[in-house]
Amino acid sequence: MLTGQKRKFAIALMSGSTQAAAAVKAGYSEKSARSKGSQLAKDPDVIAFMNKKRDSESAVEVPVYEPKTPPPVVNNLSGKFEDPLEFLKSVMNDLTEETDVRKDAAKAMLPYIHPKKGEGGKKDARNAAAKVAAGASKFGAMAPPKLVVNNKG
Rank of each mutant, 00 (worst) to 15 (best):
S137D: 15
Q19D: 00
S78W: 05
T18S: 14
P44H: 14
D94Q: 06
G135T: 10
Q39G: 00
V73C: 07
T3Q: 09
V101T: 15
E97D: 03
K68M: 02
F9P: 05
L77N: 08
A23G: 02
S32L: 02
D104W: 13
Y65T: 07
K8I: 01
A23L: 02
K122F: 03
K123W: 02
K42S: 06
V132A: 11
M14D: 15
M92F: 06
L147G: 04
L95F: 05
F81T: 15
T3G: 11
A136T: 09
F81D: 03
E98H: 12
K89H: 12
D100T: 12
P144Y: 06
M109F: 15
K89M: 09
G121S: 07
K131P: 05
L110M: 14
Y112I: 11
V62S: 05
D94W: 14
L88D: 07
T18C: 04
A143M: 01
R54G: 10
M1R: 13
F87E: 11
A22H: 06
S58W: 00
E61C: 03
Q5F: 02
V91M: 11
P70M: 00
L88H: 09
S90Q: 13
G37I: 05
A143H: 01
A48T: 14
E30W: 08
G27W: 08
M92R: 13
A33I: 12
A133G: 12
E82W: 15
A23N: 02
S32C: 01
M14I: 10
P115D: 01
V132H: 12
M50A: 13
K117V: 12
N127W: 07
A129Y: 10
M142H: 05
G120D: 09
A22C: 03
A125P: 08
P111I: 14
D43R: 12
A130N: 14
A130C: 08
G121F: 05
Y65A: 13
P70C: 01
D43N: 14
A141K: 15
A133V: 14
R54F: 05
K68Q: 03
A10L: 08
A23R: 08
N127T: 09
G27F: 07
V132C: 10
F9L: 03
A23H: 02
A22R: 11
S38D: 03
M14H: 10
N151T: 07
K116I: 10
K117W: 03
K103G: 00
N127R: 10
G37T: 06
K80L: 06
G153R: 13
P144A: 07
E30V: 14
G153E: 15
F9T: 04
D104A: 14
S32G: 06
K36P: 05
S137G: 13
Y112F: 15
I47K: 15
V73T: 12
A59Q: 02
T18V: 11
D124F: 14
F87I: 01
G118Y: 14
K122Y: 05
T96I: 10
A10F: 09
E57I: 04
R126D: 07
M109H: 14
K6C: 02
T99Y: 13
T18A: 01
